[in-house]
Design a protein around this nucleic acid. Structure first.
Lengths: 163, 163
DNA sequence: GGCAAATAGTACATTTATATAATATATACA
DNA sequence: TGTATATATTATATAAATGTACTATTTGCC
């Protein structure tokens, strides 16, 4: 997908054929989809040499972002936006790689507590410099105030979903 | 993922632990991911009664948006952001459902031309009212000028990717 | 204590997406 | 014309994501 111009061209044709089509939200949805794909792919390329993929990276960073350092699988699924069935597979992979560890919860024996191992922390320290470079590069065409404005508008857009 | 507050909390912890982490681009990336997932899921729920899923919907709408009414598989892959290997399967499904048709290209015999069948057009006429309602609802928390502004910022953000 | 009802987690089957490599046709150029 | 090269498409194997159903533990109520 070279640029976004052809997408807009197609939406223009769509609106000619079906005048009720909400063009602006339609553009936004296709932009989000397009951007998401690029972000996902770029992250995967960067992370591959580190031995993990984007979903695994997300799980590690969710754990890294907790104050307690632990989460249950269902909390992790919720945080990362993964379906619970998927969490089993992903956490299995991360366990096999030695990056996270499972242990039974003391206060609720239904739960399992997931936490980063020392190797997990080391892995994060290993890829975070690259990730920081990537994130900074991805946002470089926006000024700080534009980033703030974009964040605000995305949150507002988000508030119109799923309720 | 109930709201976005817990995500911001995690990013705050991350920045405390790793001060170089680019918080604003990080927020944007997670917002995009979150929004994309919701959009994808909502579209799938809406489309299921119509017998298709979101990727198939996208392909149909790409064809609907051309003036000629035809695209080659590779053009379609590019337009929809799907990998070429995936297009074979998806177009096969749509052919089996009778919604699109294949035919050899006259001017370049390497190519195959894909086009909507009358049933394909009928299917589009069937789900477009629902889609329009959904799109309008999804964008309802943004004023027109906010939608324009968001579109502009997303395009600018997009311009920082993949080059 | 014992019995629903709720919740967390997992296992399995299926669907969806990707990567790789193979095949086929057209194009460029000697 | 013949050969190399580029491009388009498909086949196959693999990986990733999802849906459904099942097990186990806790909770609330009798």
């Amino acid at each position: 997908m070279a640029d976004f111009a052809s997408t807009e061209q197609r939406l223009a044709v769509t609106c000619r054929r079906y005048p009720d089509f909400p063009r602006r939200p339609g553009v936004l949805v296709r932009l989000i989809k397009h951007i998401h794909k690029l972000l996902h792919d770029e992250a995967n390329v960067l992370l591959k040499p580190h031995g993990i993929n984007h979903p695994e990276y997300n799980l590690l960073m969710m754990l890294y972002g907790t104050t307690s350092g632990t989460m249950s699988p269902s909390e992790l699924a919720d945080a990362a936006g993964e379906k619970s069935a998927n969490i089993t597979r992903l956490t299995n992979e991360l366990c096999e790689k030695g990056l996270i560890a499972r242990s039974g919860s003391a206060d609720d024996r239904r739960k399992v507590e997931l936490s980063l191992t020392p190797q997990g922390h080391a892995a994060i320290d290993g890829f975070l410099p690259d990730i920081c470079t990537l994130l900074a590069r991805q946002g470089r065409h926006l000024t700080t105030s534009e980033q703030i404005q974009l964040e605000k508008l995305l949150k507002k857009f988000l508030s119109g979903l799923a309720d």
